[in-house]
Every structure is written in structure tokens, then in C-alpha cells.
Simulated scan of single mutants.
Amino acid sequence: MSKTPFVDALVQESLPIWQQCLDSDFLRGLEAGTLDEDCFKGYIVDDSLYLREYARVFAWGMTKAQTMAAMRNYYSLLSFVNENEDVARLQYLKRYGLTDDDIQSLPQRPANRAYTDYMIEATKNGEGEAECIAAVLPCMLSYFWIFRRLLKRSPGVLDTVFGPLVKDYASDGYGDACQAWADYAEKACAGLSPERAARCREIFKACSEFELGFWRMANQPRSDL
């Protein structure tokens, strides 16, 4: 019997959307090693801007936390996400002659902005930390699901310029972090009223749909780089 039945149900409901992400033109091109690097450069910039706003979601989540242990959990996840992504992300920025400071004045593209605005509002207006968790988990869990399958299907992707990104998100360490946070989410969402449980399902699925929108957006290069 699953130890995370509530989270598993959220994931199962969103799997058709995650499959669409995996089958998106951007990820198909990345998998084949044929993706236009201008599109990939735009993706790295948009991902960097996304992570800045993602941190704000956690800041709101911390305001909903009822214990110091819960606050430490938010801090640890944010630290893990930033540290795990930074090595490859910063190397890619360097490849394209960019730094974090260079891109901070750039706007988020509409699909990116809509996604982060939704997460912040869902967390800010939520009754507690469950809504925050429902907002932040789809990004983390879907990336592991997507890149693990992409790598299994096409191991040669590691030999392309996109290999470091795939390796990071398909790693056992990233998977372990995903499982740890699924376990924490299950505890945080235990005993929710039917109304709040339904709201969390709505948030999780909406954020999965925003993930799909992000991948579709990324298949077009930015015009300001």
C-alpha cells in the first residue's frame, strides 16, 4: 500500500499532462539533440527568472507554516532546488555569455509570468501550507518523471550539449528529494477538509498545465537575447 496516497492521486490525475510535456516539441528536440540552441538559451533564461519567483512562493509558504520544523523543510527544499540547478544552469548561462545579474532586468514571458503569479496567489490566499505544497510540487515531481523517462528512452542524450541538464533532473539524488517531499506533503495534507483537498487537487493540476505551457513557450526563442 502506498505511503503517499494523496500525493499519488494528485500525480495520477496529472500524468496525462506530464506525458504531453514529455512529448512537447521542445523536449523531443532536446532528446534528439536537434533542439535549436537559441530556444534552449531562452529556456535557461526563463527558468532562471522562474526560480526567482519560485523562491517567493516558498517565502509565502513559510508564513503559513505552524512550526519551526515546517519552516526548515521549506528552507531545505528551496536550498536543494537552487543548489541542484545552479551548477548546470550557471554553466549554461556562461556558455551563452550571460550571468544571473545580466538577466534580472529581462521580463518573464507571458506563460512564465502567468505560472508564477498563479503559484504566488494560490499560496498567499490559501488557508495553510497545503496549498503552497500543491503549487510547488508539480514542477519538482514532473521534472523527475519527465527526465527519468527521457533518459531511459534515449541515453545518448547525455552526449549532447543538453546532457548536464538531463543528468541533474534524472539523478537518484533528485529522485530521493522528490520522494522526501512527497512524504512531507502527505503529512501536511493529512486531515484536510473535502473542500481544501479539492482545492489542492485543483492547484496541483493547474500547475501541471502551466508546466505544459512553459515547455510549449520554450520551443520559441526569446527575441531579447
Rank of each mutant, 00 (worst) to 15 (best):
L212K: 00
Q108V: 03
L151Y: 14
E127R: 06
S208M: 01
S24T: 04
L27Y: 10
C207P: 02
D159N: 13
S14N: 04
G33H: 03
F144C: 11
M71Y: 08
Y118K: 12
D86H: 07
R148G: 06
M71G: 09
A206S: 12
L93T: 02
P221V: 05
D23V: 10
V45P: 01
A198W: 07
E211K: 09
Y75E: 10
D224T: 00
P155E: 14
D168W: 00
N219H: 14
I44K: 05
E129I: 05
A55V: 08
R216D: 14
A182H: 00
K3T: 10
Y50Q: 08
A185N: 05
L106P: 00
L93E: 15
C21M: 13
R201Y: 07
C178N: 02
A188P: 01
I120Y: 06
W145Y: 15
F204K: 01
G163L: 14
E85L: 04
L22G: 03
M119T: 01
C132N: 07
F6I: 12
C178R: 03
Q179I: 11
D25P: 05
Q19K: 13
K94H: 15
N219P: 05
P16E: 03
A188L: 04
G97Y: 09
A182E: 07
S48F: 11
C178V: 15
L51E: 06
W60T: 00
Q179R: 13
R222F: 02
E202S: 13
E13S: 11
E53F: 08
R201W: 03
Y74C: 10
E37V: 15
D38L: 11
S154L: 03
M1Y: 07
R28K: 14
T4L: 11
S171Q: 10
R196M: 08
T99A: 11
K205N: 10
I120W: 04
S79G: 10
D172C: 00
Q20H: 04
A111S: 14
L141A: 09
T4C: 14
K187W: 05
Y74G: 01
L151M: 14
M71Q: 12
A130C: 05
V136N: 00
E13G: 07
V7K: 00
L150M: 15
N112W: 02
K167H: 14
E131K: 03
V81A: 06
V81L: 02
M140Y: 09
A59H: 04
D86M: 09
K167V: 13
E186P: 01
A134Q: 01
K205E: 06
L51S: 09
E131C: 09
Y118M: 13
A190C: 10
V11H: 08
M62T: 06
S154Q: 15
V7D: 04
K64W: 08
L15R: 09
A65R: 00
A111D: 12
L98S: 12
V11D: 01
T99W: 09
R72S: 14
R199C: 09
R153F: 07
E31G: 10
A9E: 12
G191M: 06
Y174I: 02
D47S: 14
F162L: 09
I17K: 02
F58E: 02
S48W: 03
G42V: 01
L165G: 00
D172P: 00
P16M: 04
P107F: 07
S171W: 08
G213W: 05
N112P: 05
A134H: 04
D101S: 11
G156S: 10
A130V: 02
R196L: 12
A177V: 10
M140A: 07
K94Q: 15
Y54E: 06
L30Y: 05
I120R: 06
R89Y: 05
P155W: 13
